[in-house]
Structures are given as structure tokens and as C-alpha cells.
């Protein structure tokens, strides 16, 4: 057996066209799930700080359940478990998006809560004292400031969720890791192919980091 290992560059680069086919799925699950998760996060984050207990309780329950269980278990439950209740199979892509949505939604709820609560009480009082309604005060004064403070945490959550989609190879979605596994099954170049898979994830997450940094810098004006 050959003890000096040769990294096979040709195999590494040769796998890229096949791996790239997984990117649209990775992006679709990530950003589709995150977009829904963001809406869930706004809704439950605000319910979470409601003065009304019967609005707060469901929000806290949701957040604790989906933050406290692994996203892998959540997607297995949705893909294999839910069909037994509703009586029809669920598309793997839909299951993936749903899992990211409910999982990131729980974390984003907490980000939204923290962001809104971080705004000084005087801001709300100033808005109300000018005759703005509570809704207007939230919309024009509290939310724009809270959102800016939320950007770094939202970016963090985005990166975590993008990486979480790699787990969904187990339900057979043709995302990045799944494509890698399929390719390796015929060529056996595990080292080269997984390295390429890792590089592609890094390309996605670094792009997002960079975009967020620009957004943050723009948001600094006037703070």
C-alpha cells in the first residue's frame, strides 16, 4: 500500500460541477427557511414581550420547544413523522424549508425580543408624548432602531442555519452534502470532495458575512 498520499487535484476540481448542482437546494432551503423564520421571529418575538399573559405563553412555549430540540430531530419529525398524522407524504425540500423556518424562527424570536427591549424607555415616551399612537411609535421609532441592533445577531443566525441545511442530506434532499456523498459513492475521493464541499459552504457564508458588514456599516450612519 502506498504510504505517501497524493492529493488528487483533478478529482477535487472534477467534482465541482456535480457539487454545484446542490447549491440551489442549499440556498433555497436556507433563505426560504430564514425568510419564513424571520416572519415567525418578528411575530413570536413581539408576542413574547406582550403585557398580556395569554399571548406570551404560546410564544414562550414555541421558543423553548424549537430552541431546545435538535434541528435534525425536527426535520426527521417533519419528514417521517408528520405524514403519519396528515396521511400524505411531505416533499423533502418542503420539510427542509419548514425545519429551518421553525428552528431559526425560535432563535430569531429571541433576537427580536432582545433588540426591541434594548431600546431605551425614553424613546417610547418621546414618541407617545408627541401624540404618536403606540403602533406609530413602534413602527417609526422603536423598530428601525431595534432592527439595526439586530443585524449582527441575525447574520449569525443566517450562517448557523445555512450550515444546518447540511444535515438534511439524511432526508435525501439533493443539497451540497448529499451531492458530495453521491459523488464519493462512485469515485471514493472523500478527502478531495469533502474539502470542496467545505469550500463551497465557506464561499456562501463569507459572502453573507461580507454583505452584512456592508449593511451594518451603512446602518451606522446616524447612530
Amino acid at each position: 500500500m502506498d504510504v505517501t498520499f497524493q492529493f488528487d487535484w483533478q478529482a477535487a476540481f472534477g467534482s465541482i460541477p456535480f457539487l454545484l448542482k446542490g447549491i440551489p437546494y442549499t440556498l433555497l432551503i436556507s433563505f426560504g427557511g430564514l425568510a419564513i423564520g424571520f416572519l415567525i421571529g418578528i411575530l413570536f418575538g413581539l408576542l413574547r414581550i406582550s403585557p398580556t399573559a395569554w399571548l406570551r405563553v404560546p410564544a414562550v412555549t414555541y421558543i423553548e420547544i424549537f430552541r431546545g430540540t435538535p434541528v435534525l430531530v425536527q426535520v426527521l419529525f417533519i419528514f417521517y413523522g408528520l405524514p403519519q398524522i396528515i396521511g400524505s407524504p411531505i416533499n423533502a425540500l418542503v420539510a427542509g424549508i419548514a425545519a429551518i423556518a421553525v428552528n431559526s424562527g425560535a432563535y430569531i424570536s429571541e433576537i427580536v425580543r432582545g433588540g426591541v427591549q434594548s431600546i431605551e424607555r425614553g424613546q417610547r415616551e418621546a414618541g407617545l408624548s408627541l401624540g404618536l399612537s403606540r403602533r406609530q411609535t413602534f413602527r417609526y421609532i422603536i423598530w428601525p432602531q431595534a432592527f439595526r441592533r439586530m443585524i449582527p445577531s441575525l447574520g449569525n443566525q443566517g450562517i448557523i442555519s445555512i450550515k444546518d441545511t447540511s444535515l438534511f442530506s439524511v432526508i435525501g434532499v439533493g443539497e451540497l452534502v448529499r451531492q458530495g456523498q453521491v459523488y464519493i459513492a462512485t469515485t471514493f475521493n472523500a478527502l478531495e470532495v469533502y474539502l470542496m464541499v467545505a469550500m463551497l459552504y465557506l464561499a456562501i457564508t463569507l459572502t453573507l458575512s461580507f454583505a452584512l458588514r456592508m449593511l451594518e456599516r451603512k446602518g451606522l450612519v446616524g447612530q
Binding site: E120, G122, Q123, E125, A126, G127, L128, S129, L130, G131, L132, Q136, Y140, I141, P144, Q145, R148, G222, Q223
Partner: peptide
Amino acid sequence: RTEVGMVFQQFNLFPHLSVLDNVTLAPMKV
């Protein structure tokens, strides 16, 4: 609240709005 103005110890200006927008916000929205 529409008819009574208030000035606070800590100013409580809106930091995300320009000086001009701080002043025009309520007249436009209320």
C-alpha cells in the same frame, strides 16, 4: 398628548433620524 408637548431630562431625540426628521415626524404622522 397631541396638544401637550414635553421636553425630557435626557432629550430623548430619535438617533436614527436627522434633526429635521426628528422635528417633522409627529406633525406628518399625527
